[in-house]
């Protein structure tokens, strides 16, 4: 008897939800905004679907409707990936600790 590959994917999914649950609870509240922007960036990994769709079919027929939707999705996801990671980086660079040499008096 063979197990349907769907069950394997479902297992990954359920386990990843649990991983996500524990990992996100450990995120410090002061970094909740960067958390949102970085989750935004990584959810754009949907671009892999867009790339497969865009590169499908033979080279003579690259402007099939399906390809075009792939191209559009690539642009959107690319904006998100670069925008998301860079804005996260910009935000995280601002979080600094108290300077050591600071003296009162």
């Amino acid at each position: 008897m063979e197990i349907d590959p769907f069950i394997f994917r479902l297992s990954i999914f359920i386990l990843a939800i649990f991983v996500g649950y524990y990992v996100v609870w450990s995120v410090t509240p002061s970094l909740h905004t960067p958390l949102m922007s970085v989750t935004n960036a990584i959810s754009s990994v949907i671009i892999v679907g867009a790339i497969i769709a865009a590169l499908a079919g033979d080279s003579k027929n690259i402007f099939d409707t399906a390809n075009i939707f792939g191209y559009l999705a690539i642009i959107l996801a690319a904006i998100n990936i670069f925008g998301g990671f860079l804005v996260t980086h910009r935000m995280l660079a601002m979080y600094k600790k108290k300077k050591k040499e600071k003296k009162v008096n």
């Binding site: 990954i12 991983v19 996500g20 990992v23 949102m36 959810s43 679907g49």
Partner: peptide, 21 residues
């Protein structure tokens, strides 16, 4: 979409982001 494309990166990410939100 990850389930549709049978892509584990997408499934893992989706689950992470979904539970994060």
């Amino acid at each position: 979409i990850g389930f549709t494309l049978e892509n584990s990166a997408l499934i893992i990410t989706g689950a992470l982001v979904g539970s994060s939100g």
